[in-house]
Design a protein around this nucleic acid. Structure first.
Length: 280
DNA sequence: AGCACA
């Protein structure tokens, strides 16, 4: 590897590649309202802006959440010290992700949020006049429902938190009859015992970012040394292979996820394994 | 098992 040049733009690129500050959220029902997103994320630490896209596919509304970028850019000061970028947003992303991963977004339909780092950061420039929310609606049916961005003018009006009297900090009181229960306070983490669903925390792992020459045997070697290993299956179906590794217990799967996350296999050609809990 | 906008 050549010594990286000291160049702010180079560092910016590094920063772009290594520090994704955008979360990719799937599992949203396609009738999700921008308002629901607003209420769910507005108060999260580090939240900056988001884009909601209706893909038109069932249950495939996509959300890109951007965390505000706050980094310390410290150029070298002549004495040979190395320039450093200190980025804090990954940590905060993790917090948002961990808090909301597996949250049951709609108790009726059972849609469960699935959150991971986005492949790339959001590029959209925040327009001076525009709010932090952008909605792209590709649904063909029904009314266009186009709302460029929230008219919320960034003020601090908070549907969540009644400012006046009442002081109800309870659940339920602010819910309209037909509305979906979503909000900072009333989003419901999925219960373990419900219909075998575990909010994304199940004993099977989903493994992606495998190399094209990866084999089931290779995966078996990697995973079978862990307690509770049951089986691993690989599927390629056109694109890059993905795999499913099953363990007896959730905590055994959790241990494997933690230890092997990002680790390389002999066949890896594009970085380490990307491991998630299988959605159930 | 799904990632847009520039």
């Amino acid at each position: 590897m050549a010594q990286p040049p000291f160049d702010p733009y180079y560092l910016y690129q590094q920063d772009e590649r290594n520090n994704i500050n955008t979360l990719f959220v799937s599992g949203l029902p396609d009738d999700v309202k921008a308002r629901e997103i607003h209420n769910l994320f507005r108060r999260r630490p580090g939240f900056d802006s988001c884009q909601l896209k209706y893909t038109g596919r069932a249950n495939q509304a996509l959300l890109f959440l951007r965390r505000s970028i706050r980094h310390v850019f410290q150029p070298s000061i002549g004495n040979g010290s190395v320039a450093r970028l200190e980025c804090e947003y990954l940590g905060s992303n993790s917090i948002i992700r961990d808090e909301l991963r597996g949250v049951k977004f709609d108790p009726q339909s059972g849609s469960v949020l699935h959150i991971e780092l986005a492949r790339s950061n959001s590029r959209r420039k925040r327009k001076p006049g525009g709010g932090p929310y952008v909605v792209i609606d590709k649904r063909s049916k029904g009314e266009p429902d186009v709302q460029g961005s929230s008219s919320d003018d960034d003020g601090d009006s908070d549907p969540d938190e009644p400012t006046g009297s009442g002081g109800n900090h309870g659940d339920s009181a602010t819910m309209q009859s037909g509305e979906t229960a979503v909000g900072y306070d009333n989003a419901v983490p999925v219960e373990q015992h419900e219909t075998g669903s575990n909010g994304g925390l199940c004993s099977t792992l989903f493994i992606a970012n495998l190399g094209p020459t990866c084999t089931e045997d290779e995966l078996k070697q990697a995973f079978s040394v862990y307690a509770g290993f049951n089986m691993v299956k690989m599927r390629s179906r056109g694109g890059m292979p993905v795999a499913f590794a099953d363990f007896e217990e959730v905590d055994q799967a959790a241990k494997v996820l933690e230890e092997l996350q990002g680790s390389l296999l002999p066949s890896s050609d594009r970085g380490g394994m990307h491991i998630e809990y299988l959605l159930t």
